[in-house]
């Protein structure tokens, strides 16, 4: 009797799991942390735009679903996916092993190095333990840059962690930070193009070691939404094939 009960309960559980798996989406809610120029930000009249937004909308259109963008601060963005506040994350998220344990990633849709940015007055040519000793480093909390800096420099330098990239740039302009570590294009559009002060890239752009810097940006889904991820992968391949991807890329990063 007991056995029968267990078996039937198991059967129920399997049925429930498979029905959850088979769920079809006609409206995909996508979590995004705004602003992160030029990947996702708002124009002067409040419209959401950026590389992720345009590409995401193009992907949804190709799949034949509607996209709804849900704003979420970075440090809660994966828990928000788990608790079904949205169905996917498309927010400059680097694919790495730590995150793979939590979420299912699409194929990478762009690769992007990180880089150190500092005021030209800092006058160092390379960021290492010696040159950063005693400095204040800014990072966005919970990013791979945070992990990298925490593991490598927390013994020699002071680390300030911010909720948004904007707050960090503000404190950089206020001269509270000596140097920041950011995704390269974000630093480029927020700091290098800034008219407030003179900023420079310190050292090379960084995309190694892979354990921190991963395999490019991916769209994150819940583990069981394999079908949805597959649809996005197919759509992405098509957009890259027919030139739509290149067009969107050129809109934000110029022609290569």
């Amino acid at each position: 009797m007991k056995k029968l009960l267990t078996v039937s309960l198991l059967g129920l559980a399997v049925a429930a799991a498979s029905s959850a798996q088979a769920r079809d989406y006609d409206n995909v809610r996508i979590g995004v942390d705004v602003p992160y120029e030029p990947m996702e930000y708002r124009t002067a009249d409040g419209e959401l735009t950026g590389f992720d937004i345009d590409l995401g909308n193009a992907l949804c259109e190709r799949i034949g679903v509607t996209c709804e963008w849900v704003e979420q601060e970075w440090d809660g963005i994966i828990p928000g996916l788990m608790s079904r506040n949205y169905d996917a994350i498309m927010s400059s998220m680097t694919i790495n092993d730590e995150r793979r344990q939590q979420v299912l990633f699409s194929d990478p849709y762009i690769t992007m190095p990180s880089a150190w940015f500092a005021p030209s007055s800092l006058d160092i040519s390379e960021a290492n333990e010696e040159t950063l000793a005693g400095k204040t480093i800014g990072v966005q909390r919970g990013t791979l840059q945070d992990n990298f800096v925490t593991d490598n420099f927390s013994s020699v330098a002071q680390i300030s962690r911010y909720s948004t990239a904007d707050d960090m740039v503000l404190d950089m302009e206020a001269q509270r930070l000596d140097i920041v570590f950011l995704d390269f294009p974000i630093g480029q559009s927020t700091l290098l193009d800034s008219e407030e002060a003179e900023y420079v890239v310190v050292g090379e752009r960084i995309s190694e070691p892979k354990e921190y810097f991963g395999d490019g940006f991916g769209i994150a889904f819940r583990q069981r939404d394999e079908a949805l991820a597959e649809q996005f992968n197919e759509a992405l391949a098509e957009l890259q094939e027919d030139g739509t991807y290149d067009e969107i890329y050129a809109r934000y990063f110029g022609e290569e």
Binding site: D75, R141, R161
Partner: peptide, 22 residues
């Protein structure tokens, strides 16, 4: 912790963001 201070809540937010364990 919103102004980068690593107070008790700041530490919790750091651990939360690093291990996705709210």
């Amino acid at each position: 912790s919103v102004v980068t201070l690593m107070d008790l809540t700041g530490a919790a937010r750091f651990v939360y963001a690093r291990f996705y364990a709210p």
